[in-house]
């Protein structure tokens, strides 16, 4: 493979683009959480609008990865790098979509203050997830298998927090249509956060595959 040097540079570029995609998605998630906390309705629209950039970057990564496979015919670890880039970029794009779903659900809630008692639990769960997100991106950048395994363990904590949260909001006495809608949207938001943690776990699994060539179902 005479193009080795160029190929390595292109693999590095691919990873950098995924890090960029990761930071965009991470920011969308952080922004939606802050907006929920501050009831910043204007921010929701901005988050929804920004998702287009996430989608187009994912498409760009897909195209680059496909071209690399076609032109360089990679094998072994080189091939895994590219396959994992495709997988992780698709997981990240889904996280971006979930941040948008959260923003839309929050838009449908017009009396967020009503839930102040429960919001801290939701935010605690979100903070854990957000930490997973940050750490899994660093682990991907560094190819850190041990960290990837550790991150996946946190998913259990998020799942548990999600279960408890849903249980607690379903104790709210629903006596009108509006309250029912509010509780439903709150449950959706929690569900989306839990899904984001699942995607972080997926990414952790892909990191292990990239480094070791073995697939692990971490959660």
């Amino acid at each position: 493979m005479p193009m080795r040097g160029g190929f390595l540079a292109e693999l590095r570029e691919l990873k950098e683009e995924i890090m960029l995609l990761g930071s965009m998605v991470e920011k969308a998630f952080e922004d939606v959480l802050t907006a929920i906390e501050n009831e910043d309705v204007a921010k929701f629209n901005e988050i929804i609008k920004n998702d287009k950039k996430v989608n187009s970057l994912e498409l760009d990564i897909n195209e680059k990865a496909t071209l690399l496979i076609a032109k360089q015919q990679p094998v072994a670890s080189d091939l895994r790098n590219i396959i994992v880039a495709l997988k992780i970029s698709s997981d990240l794009e889904r996280v971006g979509d979930l941040a948008v779903d959260m923003a839309k659900a929050a838009q449908r809630m017009d009396r967020m203050s009503y839930f102040k008692d429960y919001q801290s639990d939701l935010m605690a769960m979100a903070t854990k997830t957000s930490k997973m997100m940050r750490e899994v991106l660093i682990a991907y950048q560094q190819g850190n298998v041990i960290e990837a395994q550790h991150i996946a363990n946190v998913d259990d904590e998020v799942d548990e927090a999600y279960g408890q949260f849903v249980k607690s909001i379903f104790t709210i006495k629903i006596d009108d249509k509006e309250t029912a809608e509010q509780v439903t949207q709150m449950a959706f938001i929690a569900r989306y956060i839990e899904r984001i943690a699942d995607y972080c776990t997926n990414i952790a699994e892909w990191i292990i595959y990239e480094v070791n060539g073995e697939r692990f179902d971490l959660n």
């Binding site: 493979m1 080795r4 990679p74 094998v75 072994a76 670890s77 091939l79 895994r80 070791n212 073995e214």
Partner: peptide, 17 residues
């Protein structure tokens, strides 16, 4: 061999290192 070789020398050879 072509997905996950055991020996680093094999990996280096098939990936063109």
């Amino acid at each position: 061999i072509f997905s996950n070789p055991t020996d680093k020398r094999t990996e280096d050879y098939i990936t063109g290192r």
